[in-house]
Simulated assay, not measured.
Amino acid sequence: MSDDPRSAMIQDGNIMRIENALVEETFCFNDSSGYIIVSYSVPGENNTSFIEYIRLNFSRNTVIINSFGQNVCPCCLQKGMWVNVIFSSRMTRSIPPQSGALLIVVKRGIQTPSSVTTAPVAYVDPSNNFLYTGNPNNINSQTRFLITDTTTITNRFGNPVSLSALRPGQLVRIRHANAMTASIPPQTTAFAVQLV
């Protein structure tokens, strides 16, 4: 019997489910849409198994969370992550087949790789939950950070502050996802923001 942790696809009415799918490829069109290609195990004869692939398209209607129920940035999904997925039973006949993802749960124990950047605030967009760092007069020097419900924002003493309390020119230290979009300015998700 195979010891591959990937499990087979299971159908339940109009939805399909795969537990322990391996993310093989990701593509993020913008901060709310893109796709992942995952692999999963299909049992064969004589205790063998085969690896199959499916492309799962996600949109702003797709729920993407970690095992603690916290939102995960779609662009933070990376090759090599293990996920549980629920998706529509309506699939294309392409290779690999495609379907619309309803729920993606990043498995417990998988840490999103992160980096720390220290830079001045260029400007703040609280209505869209974005924080821009770099030179306000040079878009090529800027980075756009998505502020989620789980992002912590603190002053230099560690006390919580709101995004709208940040001002251009203030120096901030941001712990963020390693993955960035190829846009100008590049975008990533901020996990923690602290005034320096």
Score class of each variant (00 low, 15 high):
residue 2 S to D: 14
residue 7 S to L: 15
residue 8 A to Y: 03
residue 17 R to A: 11
residue 19 E to R: 14
residue 19 E to A: 10
residue 20 N to K: 15
residue 29 F to P: 00
residue 30 N to K: 05
residue 42 V to P: 00
residue 46 N to T: 01
residue 48 T to A: 06
residue 52 E to S: 13
residue 57 N to C: 05
residue 59 S to R: 07
residue 59 S to N: 13
residue 59 S to D: 11
residue 60 R to N: 14
residue 60 R to A: 13
residue 61 N to H: 12
residue 66 N to W: 06
residue 67 S to V: 05
residue 68 F to V: 09
residue 69 G to R: 00
residue 70 Q to I: 06
residue 70 Q to K: 15
residue 71 N to R: 15
residue 73 C to L: 09
residue 73 C to R: 08
residue 76 C to D: 13
residue 77 L to P: 08
residue 83 V to R: 09
residue 85 V to F: 09
residue 86 I to G: 01
residue 90 R to N: 06
residue 93 R to M: 12
residue 94 S to N: 09
residue 94 S to F: 05
residue 96 P to V: 02
residue 99 S to Y: 00
residue 101 A to F: 02
residue 105 V to F: 02
residue 105 V to E: 15
residue 105 V to C: 04
residue 109 G to V: 11
residue 109 G to I: 09
residue 112 T to A: 13
residue 116 V to H: 01
residue 117 T to M: 03
residue 118 T to E: 12
residue 121 V to G: 00
residue 125 D to A: 10
residue 126 P to R: 08
residue 136 P to W: 04
residue 136 P to F: 03
residue 136 P to G: 04
residue 138 N to A: 12
residue 147 I to P: 05
residue 150 T to K: 10
residue 161 V to C: 03
residue 162 S to N: 12
residue 163 L to T: 08
residue 165 A to M: 09
residue 170 Q to N: 03
residue 171 L to W: 04
residue 175 R to S: 09
residue 176 H to A: 10
residue 180 M to P: 00
residue 182 A to P: 02
residue 184 I to R: 14
residue 185 P to N: 06
residue 188 T to E: 00
residue 194 Q to P: 09
residue 196 V to P: 00
residue 196 V to R: 08
